[in-house]
């Protein structure tokens, strides 16, 4: 639904997120995307961002940046050890494991 509404305005929107930015974000997020997807996401992300840009109309001169959405501060605990999971429980949901380790494809630096 949202996609359709945004798409209908597509022609009038400015591309604030270009295709290279999309490709870079995909790379950083380890996502594989095709050129046509990159083009599509560029338009969609630009539309979303442009929509949110409406907030820039507000004067926020004297407003402190929101660092946390709840009025909480100094939530601290004492330095006490609590029981951990057993090794078996920790690895229970791992699709690949060996000798108590999580086994993952080697990442070459």
């Amino acid at each position: 639904m949202v996609k359709r509404i945004l798409s209908s305005k597509r022609q009038t929107m400015k591309n604030t997120i270009d295709i290279n930015t999309v490709k870079r974000m995909a790379f950083l997020s380890r996502l594989e995307i095709s050129d046509s997807e990159a083009k599509e996401f560029s338009l969609q992300l630009s539309e979303t961002l442009n929509y949110v840009h409406k907030l820039n109309e507000l004067d926020t001169e004297d407003i402190e940046p929101t660092i946390h959405v709840l009025p909480l501060k100094n939530v601290l605990r004492e330095d006490k050890v609590r029981p951990s999971l057993t090794q078996e429980r920790a690895l229970m949901n791992a699709s690949c494991k060996e000798d108590g380790y999580f086994k993952v494809p080697k990442i070459v630096e």
Binding site: A90, E98, D99, G100, Y101, F102, K103, V104, P105, K106, I107
Partner: peptide, 9 residues
């Protein structure tokens, strides 16, 4: 030579 990495958290 290793094909895998083993993770210890």
């Amino acid at each position: 030579e290793s094909q895998y990495s083993f993770a210890d958290y």
